[in-house]
Amino acid sequence: MRKKELLVKYILGILSTKERQLLDLWMKESPNNALYLEKLKKRNYSERYQEYKRSHRNFSVRQSGWKHVLVQAACWTIPVLVAFSLYLGLRSDKEIQIEPGTSKAILYLDPTTKIELGNSKEFEWIRLNRLDMVAEKQGILDYHQTSSRQDIHQNNLLETPRGGEYRVILEDGTRIHLNSQSTLSYPVCFEADNRTVELTGEAYFEVAKDPKRPFMVKVNGVTVRQYGTKFSINARSPQNTMIVLEEGSIGMISPDEDVRMLNAGDVAVWDRVHSTISITAPESFEAYVAWHRSRFVFDDQSLGEIMENLSLWYDMNVQFEDEALSKIHFTGSVGRYENVNILLNAIEATSSVKFHIDEHQITVMNKY
């Protein structure tokens, strides 16, 4: 067993008798080893572990069933706190840190006029048609009860880069959380008979109720229609668009006007190539909407999928030294605003994978 795992298990109080003997031998090798262990104990890791334990957040790995994946995966589940401990005390202080994304976006008032938005704590107004119409503060763009009093026939476009997110409140009160590398096109003022927006990328919608005006999202050739509910749309793939309905019901309208209805808890996938809509009702859809609630939740996801999601949020590039490593599956949860090293360390501690970070390039390699 590696020294890292021995130290972490000692801190968490889960050493076996054999492991304790190995740790004692290591401590006898040098007086500095005992001093180092005492230093770790003083950081009060046990209290952090209890906090994570109460939240029941675990991180585990399983070996893929693919024949060509020759990876020896660890057989035990380690709480995410293991990664937290490694991150704080067991990794080099000189290790490159890749920070999480922040609230930032570009607002296009028209094709030639753009405004860079950030996470300023100061309240600011954005002028439309020579009037102060849009309020912007702390990562939220607010059109509600400002532009609704004006008859402005104009579309705006909100664009988030890699490593960015932004929230917007439309003039009807609908709230939209735009994930990284996504765009949302919407009118400053909705029409009298409908509320239509267009999306690329990923977003979470909390639609204001209006029984007289359907809210419609046009995305990848399909239209989502409803009158007031909560749902998320992931349209990152050019072929498959995923819609997850959290409350109420919505209708999905294909280009040939075929309408499929979704109920709360349903997950629908629009296959643009084959023009088909498939609907399932999983036991839990937390993994699909966790990003909106400031977490990453992976439910038996491949490392390739995990790293693709992380690359967008942490604005980093990922390369697999061995493509077989991308097929290993993980289950776990970690905060979305944590340093990426926390998650990477959790994966390293529970598998035969290791990561090399060079500025914003992460290389995934075999550990052994």
Rank of each mutant, 00 (worst) to 15 (best):
A192K: 15
G173A: 10
P161M: 03
C189N: 14
N194P: 05
N156Y: 01
A192D: 15
T160L: 02
N179I: 07
D193Y: 11
T160G: 05
L178Q: 04
A192P: 11
R195H: 10
I176F: 04
Q181L: 10
L170S: 11
N194L: 12
V168D: 06
L184C: 03
S180I: 00
L158K: 12
V197I: 01
N179F: 08
T174M: 07
N156P: 08
T183Q: 15
A192V: 14
T160M: 04
E171G: 12
Y186K: 06
T160C: 05
L158V: 14
E198D: 12
A192L: 15
Y166K: 06
R167Y: 13
H177W: 13
P161N: 07
F190R: 06
P161Q: 07
P187H: 01
I169F: 08
L184R: 03
P187Y: 01
L158Y: 08
E198C: 12
C189T: 14
I176M: 07
Y166Q: 07
T183R: 14
N179R: 08
N194K: 15
V168Y: 07
V168N: 09
S180Y: 01
E191A: 15
T160D: 06
L157T: 15
D172L: 08
G163D: 09
Y186T: 03
V188Y: 02
R167E: 15
P187R: 04
P187N: 04
N156V: 08
P187W: 02
L184I: 06
Y166R: 08
Y166L: 00
D193A: 13
S180A: 14
N179V: 04
R162H: 13
S180Q: 03
R195I: 04
L158E: 13
L170E: 14
V168K: 06
N179A: 13
N194V: 12
R162V: 09
N156R: 10
P187S: 05
N179H: 10
S182Q: 01
E171N: 14
G173I: 09
F190C: 01
E165I: 10
F190A: 03
E171L: 02
I169N: 10
E165M: 13
F190S: 03
R167N: 15
V197L: 00
I169C: 06
L170H: 13
T160N: 05
E159P: 00
N179P: 05
D172Y: 08
V197C: 01
Y186H: 07
G173R: 09
Y166I: 03
L184P: 02
G173T: 13
E171F: 02
I169H: 07
E198W: 09
A192Y: 09
R195C: 05
T183E: 14
R175W: 05
S185W: 03
V168P: 07
E165C: 07
L184N: 01
L184E: 01
T196N: 15
T183K: 14
Q181M: 09
I169L: 13
D172A: 11
